[in-house]
Design a protein around this nucleic acid. Structure first.
Length: 442
RNA sequence: GCGAUCGUAGCUCAACCGGUUAGAGCACUGGCUUGUGAUGCCAGGGGUUGCGGGUUCAAGUCCCGUCGAUCGCCCCA
């Protein structure tokens, strides 16, 4: 271990090989699905004025003061690395006049930063997929977002282990009534609650509902349901959401204890949850945040959105099988490297007859080592580039299959293209399957 | 912020109740065999056992601290 090398920052990760491929696969599938649903790409800055996040998070001072990466820049302004996408997108919506595009359907993905203790599936720099519909008050927007999330998980092949838990927080009147009823209920059982939950009662009473403490469970389970205080309007909204999900074939499960801490959340709240990731089981979550844009000083603007942890999704999917290397060129020695480079460049760029070919070159070690390396890489074929025998030649080429041919390609475009290329550039003869390059055509 | 477990070559790990030159596989380098070859053979480089202190005749092994990792609590926008 190098003593002088600075270490990676706690909670950050370096990804290579399979881990990186998994990550990339999630992003690619998301990008494809998001287009199917007509969500445009949006790019927003990785850092913003601290106020963007502080205001959107409102009174939850713990989160703002302890769990954000905030710093002063050289001009003395307080900046913060984004801990979420929504606030930044909402800010962009306001500062760029994107109201003109409402309802705006946008998607993005990238790194986010939270100063938290790392654990399974939780990092300080982590990555999310994100989708938002801004300026749509209709339940159809909620449905669209949920169905897209559902399809994403299906296309990633992880829908089986994941369930959509759905709830409504009602309109603001319902939400207030529910909150009051909960506080009353928990006050009555104050003494039986865990210490943590007694704290929550003062700060964030809704959170007692999803407490993990065994002591709290009976009291939380006996708490009044939002359904008891739901307004007709809120109930109708929720019914339209569930009807839409059913129509689209998205399975869901009511979880009346699913809540959101912040006050601007209204109506739909949801999480796609798995039990395969230990305690950090939420894989995708979101809801309707009709009050957020006002909190940022904008006009009353209804909106819905969700975000999903890329790392968590990546842990759940099967191993992506990247396209194999079709051909590895093996120059026999350094003198044959130039010829190999010429042929290699052709394979990698030629698209006259379909896609270019994934090709590589093994250029270090003895010929034996090069061959072994090519074989271990999982490449399908090898092209040896050898010194010409006898005088006057340019080089000898011999192509060899490393795997049974029927496993990958009966047409063998690679051989076909090699022959075409050689015919155009060289005078050559075939001798016992070896291309003997005699001279260059000019 | 709190708790538990862990920290040995580049990587994955081994080393009986503390005991003498800390081992193996993979990877890397060189060579042999092969002479167109699939997990063949030989050799080599590489570790002050995360770091700092302590106990002991003796510490990778025990104790304290520190840093890091993992899992959980809190939090979860």
């Amino acid at each position: 271990m190098a003593k002088n090398t600075p270490q990676a920052i706690r909670g950050t990760q370096d990804m290579l090989g399979e881990t990186a491929e998994r990550f990339q696969h999630v992003v690619e599938v998301f990008d494809r699905v998001r287009r199917l649903y007509g969500f445009g790409r949006v790019e927003v800055p990785v850092f913003e004025a601290t106020a963007v996040f502080a205001r959107s998070l409102g009174e939850t001072t713990d989160v703002v003061s302890k769990e954000m990466y905030s710093f002063e820049d050289r001009g003395g302004d307080s900046l913060t690395l984004r801990p979420e996408f929504t606030a930044g997108i909402a800010r962009a919506y306001l500062t760029n006049g994107w109201q003109q595009h409402a309802p705006l359907k946008v998607a993005t993905h990238g790194p986010l930063f939270r100063y938290e203790r790392p654990q399974k599936g939780r990092f300080r720099q982590f990555h999310q997929l994100d989708a938002e519909i801004i300026g749509a008050a209709e339940p159809a927007a909620d449905v669209e977002l949920l169905v897209m999330a559902d399809q994403l998980l299906k296309e990633l092949g992880i829908a089986d282990g994941v369930t959509l838990q759905l709830n409504t927080l009602g309109d603001s009147a319902t939400r207030e009534a529910w909150r009051a009823a909960l506080v009353k209920h928990f006050e009555a059982h104050r003494g039986e609650l865990s210490d943590d939950s007694q704290e929550r009662l003062a700060r964030n009473p809704l959170r007692i509902l999803d407490s993990k403490d065994r002591q709290d469970r009976p009291i939380a389970d006996a708490a009044p349901s939002i359904d008891d205080v739901m307004s007709d309007e809120a109930a109708a909204f929720f019914a339209q959401v569930t009807t839409g999900l059913d129509a689209a074939g998205a399975k869901w499960e009511r979880n009346a204890r699913l809540v959101r801490g912040l006050d601007y959340y209204r109506h739909t709240a949801f999480e796609f949850v798995t039990d395969r990731l230990g305690t950090q089981g939420t894989v995708l979550g979101g809801g309707r945040y009709d009050g957020l844009i006002e909190a940022l000083g904008g006009p009353e603007t209804p909106a819905v959105g969700w975000a999903a942890g890329i790392e968590r999704l990546a842990m759940l999917i099967g191993v992506p099988r990247p396209d194999p290397v079709e051909l590895v060129l093996i120059p026999q020695d350094s003198e044959m490297q130039t010829l190999a480079t010429e042929i290699l460049a052709h394979f990698r760029s030629d698209q006259s007859d379909g896609d270019a070919i994934i090709a590589d070159m093994a250029f270090s070690g003895s010929p034996k080592k090069r061959y072994d390396k090519a074989r271990k890489s999982g490449a399908l074929r090898v092209l040896n580039v050898e010194q010409p025998v006898g005088a006057g030649g340019i080089g000898n080429l011999r192509i060899r299959d490393l795997k049974p041919v029927d496993e990958y390609d009966e047409q063998d475009v690679v051989r076909k293209r090699l022959r075409t290329f050689l015919s155009a550039k060289f005078e050559f003869v075939m001798n016992d399957r070896v291309f003997e390059l005699k001279a260059r055509k000019s």
